[in-house]
Structure formats: C-alpha cells, structure tokens
Design a protein around this nucleic acid. Structure first.
Length: 593
RNA sequence: GGUCCGGUAGCUCAGUGGAUAGAGCAGUAGCCUUCUAAGCUAUUGGUCGAGGGUUCGAUUCCCUCCCGGACUACCA
C-alpha cells in the first residue's frame, strides 16, 4: 500500500539502522478499535526507539498523508482510517481482476510439486478417513496450483498383498461367481463384503483353534494367523500370486477391476483427477538396488543374521532388507520415491498420509538424505489426525465405519431435499439433484478442511448435516446472494461500472474491502504452510462481513443510483473472491440456493 | 520406558510474544409487506491442564509435572 511504502521511506531516512528490506505490514483493525487498518509498532521499536515513540513518529507522518483520513494511536498501535476512495483503490477492490491475478507468487518462488494422496487398498471401499485424506490432498494440490506452482497429483494404489488375498480367498470360497452386475452392488463394496466375510470366518476358526489348544491362549491373532486353515490358504495365495499363478492372477485382475471401477465413481464425485496412478503391484519390487548402493556407500550395514540395516541415530535402527533378502515397506518406499523423482523431477514431493506414519517418513527422508540425493531435503509428509466419531473411534469390526459413498448420498440428499423445499416446484428434479450434490459435497469438504490437518477431529454426523453457521453452505449462500443482487440490479438498469469509489464510506463497506484485500496473502500463506484451514477461516470471515453488509447496506434500494452502483461493484468483488476461494478448495458454488 | 502430537467456553474447534482470548453449535431475547431467514442483531458462558522461569509484556517461548492419543515390527 502506498502509505506504507511512503512511511517506510520516511522511517528509513530518519533512522540509520532501519533495514533496507520492507518490515512494515498492516493488519485489519480489530473490532472495537477506531480504524480500517492497524500498524503494530512493537515490531519496529528496535529500529525506531521505544514502541510508543515509534507509534508517535509513524502516526505523525501518516496523519499528513494524502490517503489517510484519521489516525488513532493506542499504546504502540497506530489505527489508521483511510479515505474511502483510497481504501478501495489500495485494497484493489476497485480492480477486482488485479486482486485475483495478484494471488500468484512471483515466478522465482514457483516450483514443481508432486503430491501423492489417497493411496487406498483394493480390498474395501473408502471411508470417512479416506475422504479426509482425499480432501486434504486435492485441496492442497488445487491451492498450490492457484498460487502458481506446477502441480502433479498422483495416487499409489495398494493393489497387492495379504489383505488383498483375504478378500480374494473369501470370494473364491463363498462368492458363487457373483459380480457387481449380477448383484447390483458397487464393485469396491462387493469386494469389501468378502473382506469382512474372510475376517468373520477367520474369527470363528481362531476361536475354535484356541479352544482346541489351550497353550495358544496368550498368542495374538496375528501370531496364530498361519496356524489357521484360512490364514495359511491366504498366505499360499499370496505366494501363488507372486509366482504368477494364472488362476490367482486372473481372479486378482477381475476383483481389482471391480474395485477400480468403484473408486472411479467415488473419485469422480469428489472431483478428483490424478495425473498418474502408480500400482504397488508394479512398484513393490523397487528399492532393492538402492539397498545394494547403500551397502557400497556404507550407509547400510549387513547384520550377523544377514538382514540389511540402517543406523538412524536417535530414530533408531531400521531394517531395510529382511534376513531372507526380501523387501520391507520402507524398501519399496525408497524405490518408489526415487522412481517418482526420476519420472517428474519435482522440486518438492508431498505425501498426504496419516500421522501414525510420522516415524516411517522421518526414517525414509533421513535415509534418502544419507544416500546423497540432493532433492531429499525437499520431501514433506503432510500428516493428518484420525477422524473419530462422537462416541469414539471408527471400527470396522463394530460396524461404526462411516462409508464414503453413503456419506456423500446422505449429505447430498439432505441438501437436495432442502433445495426442493425452497424452490417450491420451480426447479426441475435434475437441477435439485445438481444443487444438492454441490452443496452436500461442498459442506463435507469444507468441514474437513476447517480443521487443522494435525488435529484428531471428531466428526459429528448429525451436526454436519445441519448446513448452518460455520459451514460450506454458509459461504456458498453468501456467494449466491451476489447473483440475486446482480439480477435485481439489472432489472432496475443498474450496473457496477463507472463507479465513484468515494461513496463507499459506510463502516461495513470499508470493513468488507479491508478483508477482501487480504485474499492473496491468505492463499499464499496457506500454501506455504500447506494447510487449507486458513483459507476456510478467511472465507467464513468474508462471508460473515458480506452478510452484515447485505443487511445494512441495501444495494438496489440505496439512496442514490451512484451509491447503488458502487455497492453492486463491491458485492461483485465479494462474489468473485468467495467463488474463487471455494473453487480453490475444490468446492463448487451453485447458481442459487 | 523413549519419541511425537494434543489439553483454550457445556460441545466442536480457531488463535499466537503484544490492545478487553475468538467463532460455530447449544442456551436466552429479538428481526421475514424490503437484494433469498441455509440469513441478521443482541446476550449468557473462560484460573487458555498445573506449577516454575525468560520478557516491558506469555495462552503463545523454555523447564518440570499431570491427563489423552499416536508411534516405538524382518506389517503395510
């Protein structure tokens, strides 16, 4: 802002030790204080004497500035009231295209970012936990794009392993050849049903086994897995899969294709489009050559039992190759990390993975650094907390898992019902569905993004279906209100062109403009922190200010056509920012609500 | 035991070295002949887990302790 750069120049000329780079920044003036912006002079006190003296000096200069109407100094805070026209110009509200364009980072700060998220297993449908992952991933990807990065979105599907064999085996035994088509069940759900079936049958067997062998009492399920008939059959199936047994491979192909078809529907509904999907079945053998390289470099050592290990200091010792020479999880992760780098040469790689894997990623990143990869210090694990329900954790065994597709249906259905109700027959059923989907899915994503990723959040199904208060629909509603203002204004022949910005001097109007001016900063900060929750808070804040404006400053029935035009222009700017903001979070905005 | 994350209003969560700690929900009292009430206005509600320290100033930084969770596999 001009008055800031002017003040900066003034201070620099007055104080010899004032730094060359800019240090001044203003915040919105808090509620209850007298001003549009506030300058905190505690922060420049070290260059300009004590805080209060700094505030006096700054205030004195600003009170003479052409853009400033009044200055109110409280302690070391300089509360600045701008002239209305200057405020609208400096906040870029008067040039909304510039406001939206200036969101992007300077070219030098842009880079190529690879972001991996979702990473589902192909043995069951996705649940609320996946929805949080998907939402965090897709929204962060979108945000990074919005500020100018070149973003590649990838998925790594866990399509092989013992858990996959479990559902395959249960299907083989109990499936009677049914298919998603024959039974009308979505493919991922059908396969998931057999995974559940396997576990149910296994439990029975374990119970019988323990009854027959009292000496097994203190051995847990995993230890006894291989002792059960089903368990050993699943293990055999995995070996058959690995040796390329035709029958097993054919079954695997068939069931995975069902799951992929199911996932495609879920992803489409969320609006997810990956640039590339890696399959674990094609990457799980990667990484062994890196182990040999690490051994040569002395990064890894061979233990007496022939296992290859890596000493990671206070992180502990990590086995990177089993004593029988086979890979562990981190081996293939080392391999895929290198593969991803070779495929895309990204400046930064991000993994969206739950916080239970924090240690794993610390180890992975440390190993990649030890192996000498220059890019390894630009790896980032975006960890997020679990999603709990009001009465505790989601547990598949207790049937408390919130299924993604069911949840979408429920959210969408409720929103559609509300739309149908409000439209009172004026909307086609198709339009009702479309709006319901945008509002319902939007509400869900918005709610998931509102929390800081790190927090272990509680999902309250009842509360989430309310669509009131700090929700996505609240922001969507504010955005659509702009449409109705525009429509009504057009009927009266009003446009938001050739505006006299000096007319927007109502406190509510100025407050709104001040908030709008922080849009770019908010997005860039959120992108730097890799955390969308700041954007959510910001959009709620703008929507709230706009709803007050909506009540207090009528547009169409304003005192003069000139004022109406100016208010319309301000409302248009709000509409653009809210829509751009929601879209950046991958949330759509309906035409009306 | 060790490492990491959290503990802020009845509930769910923001905040972060600075002005009187915020929002939504829930509660209370109002507002639809007006651009859509999925809205607005007012209001009740807090020893920011506890105790020390650093600082002009700490909910925020440091230390100790208490409580909750995650991790601590030759599982993924």
């Amino acid at each position: 802002m001009k008055f800031l750069t002017d003040l900066e120049a003034h201070l620099r000329s007055r104080f010899a030790n004032y730094p060359a780079e800019a240090v001044l920044a203003v915040d919105p003036c808090p509620e209850g204080q007298n001003g549009d912006f506030t300058l905190n002079c505690f922060k420049i006190a070290r260059f300009c004497g004590n805080p209060v003296a700094a505030a006096q000096a700054a205030g004195e200069f600003l009170s003479r500035h052409e853009d400033i109407e009044a200055v109110d100094i409280v302690k070391a805070f300089v509360n600045i009231t701008m002239k209305a026209g200057a405020l609208m110009r400096e906040t870029e509200v008067a040039d909304m295209d510039a406001l939206l364009r200036n969101v992007a980072l300077p070219h030098a700060e842009r880079g190529k970012v690879l972001i991996e998220y979702s990473a589902p297993n192909t043995n069951k449908p996705q649940h609320l936990g996946h929805v949080r992952n998907n939402t965090l991933g897709m929204s962060l990807a979108s945000l990074l794009k919005r500020v100018g990065h070149d973003v590649v979105e990838i998925n790594l599907v866990n399509d092989r392993g013992i858990h996959i064999c479990k559902s395959m085996l249960a299907y083989q035994r109990f499936g009677n050849g049914e298919t998603p088509e024959s039974c009308g069940i979505k493919g991922d759900h059908l396969v998931g049903d057999y995974y559940v079936k396997f576990n149910a049958e296994l439990s029975k067997e374990l119970k019988a086994l323990r009854a027959a062998h009292p000496e097994y009492a203190d051995r847990d399920d995993d230890e006894l897995f291989g002792e059960t008939e089903l368990g050993s059959a699943a293990q055999k199936m995995l070996r058959d899969w690995e040796t390329g047994n035709k029958e097993v491979r054919a079954l695997w192909e068939k069931m995975n294709s069902w799951v992929f078809a199911g996932f495609a529907v879920t992803y489409e509904r969320m609006g997810i489009h990956f640039d590339h999907t890696y399959l674990e079945s094609q990457t799980y053998l990667l990484g062994k050559d890196i182990v040999s390289k690490g051994l040569e470099m002395g990064v890894f050592t061979r233990r007496a039992d022939n296992a290859v290990i890596c000493d990671l200091g206070k992180l502990g010792t990590k086995v990177v190759l089993r004593s029988d020479g086979t890979s562990v999880y981190i081996t293939q992760d080392m391999g895929t990390t290198l593969r991803k780098y070779e495929d895309y040469h990204a400046d930064t790689m991000i993994w969206v993975v739950g916080d239970e894997q924090i240690l794993h990623f610390q180890m992975l990143f440390t190993i990649m650094k030890k192996l000498g990869y220059a890019w390894a210090d630009k790896l980032f694990h975006l960890s997020y907390g679990m999603v709990n329900l009001p009465n505790g954790k989601m547990k598949s065994r207790e049937g408390t898992v919130v299924d993604a597709d069911d949840l979408f249906d429920e959210m969408s259905g409720l929103a559609a019902a509300e739309c149908r109700n409000r439209a009172d027959g004026a909307l086609s059923e198709e339009e009702v569905k479309t709006r319901g989907e945008i509002i319902g899915i939007g509400a869900l994503k918005f709610m998931l993004l509102k929390f800081n990723p790190k927090t272990t959040m509680t999902f309250d199904p009842a509360a989430s279906l309310k669509f009131e208060g700090d929700t996505g629909p609240y922001v969507q509603y504010a955005a659509t209100r702009v449409n109705s203002i525009r429509r009504k204004a057009a009927e009266r022949g009003l446009t938001g062109k050739n505006v006299d910005w000096n007319l927007l001097c109502h406190p509510t109007e100025k407050k709104l403009a001040v908030k709008l001016s922080f849009y770019g900063n908010t997005l860039r900060q959120a992108a730097a922190k890799r955390d969308c929750s700041g954007v959510v808070e910001y959009l709620l804040d703008v929507a709230k200010a706009f709803n007050s404006f909506y009540r207090e400053c009528p547009v169409v029935s304003a005192d003069s056509p000139e004022l109406a035009a100016a208010r319309l222009a301000l409302a248009e700017c709000v509409g653009k920012v809210l829509t751009d903001g929601l879209n950046t979070l991958t949330i759509q905005v309906p035409e009306a609500m």
